[in-house]
Nucleic acid binder design. Structure first.
Lengths: 109, 109
DNA sequence: GAGTTGGTTAGTCATGTGGCTAAGTATTTC
DNA sequence: GAAATACTTAGCCACATGACTAACCAACTC
């Protein structure tokens, strides 16, 4: 039940993986292209990609000897929804508190 | 630079901690009140609270022997902003792709 | 078909994370 | 002032995570 969001957020809790997501927003890319500019061994980088794939953020497919990675269409939905829902609730509460404070202020004067 | 988002997302990558955030949205609460209903030892739970506090999502203050925890006013901003920015970019790209596909379709017929 | 390129597998290592118990401290409360 | 309450600290354990090297395989390229 909670597992979806768990792996989703923990996939994004790493700067390398967020960078990959940001790269992929501009379009699909091969593993080696993504790897360029990240200062780490390829196997390490590959495991980051696996985490992203397991979390449902990206897909990949191999053609010949090149593996191409791309964002999944609804990739950012789950997280964005969560934030939207809770941010809204939270801001609603802040508004009510502000109004309450205003009322108290008015009553006092 | 990235550290902020790192700890932010990894704080939310755990169901217990997300549950606490959801509880706190309805208002501040004492540690023991938050702990009720979470089936784990108090010290363990306390460490989850520490993670939340270190990530900047919540604050706490002790009065007498009771520690009260509450959301920080701008708590969900950082994450919501990240999603907003990237979701927008991504959806923009999807729109352009859709339009492109439509054009190709039209050209072909 | 030998060499290069692009990725993969396997195995090791250090550190981090989430859980526990046991024992301690600081306030109330009676 | 003894007992109960509300955390807090310390220390342990198992497993997950992020990094590495070394060796391997598959598919182009010349």
């Amino acid at each position: 039940m909670t597992n979806q969001l768990d792996s989703f957020f923990s996939a994004l809790a790493d700067p390398t993986r967020r960078a990959v997501v940001e790269q992929l927003i501009h379009g699909p890319a091969a593993v080696s292209a993504l790897h360029d500019g990240h200062d780490m061994a390829l196997p390490t980088f590959l495991r980051h990609l696996k985490v992203l794939e397991d979390s449902g953020l990206v897909t990949s497919a191999k053609k010949g000897r090149v593996r191409t990675v791309e964002m999944r269409p609804d990739a950012l939905r789950a997280g964005a929804d969560w934030f939207e829902a809770h941010k809204t609730m939270w801001e609603g509460r802040m508004d009510r508190l502000t109004r309450l404070a205003d009322q108290l202020e008015r009553t006092r004067t």
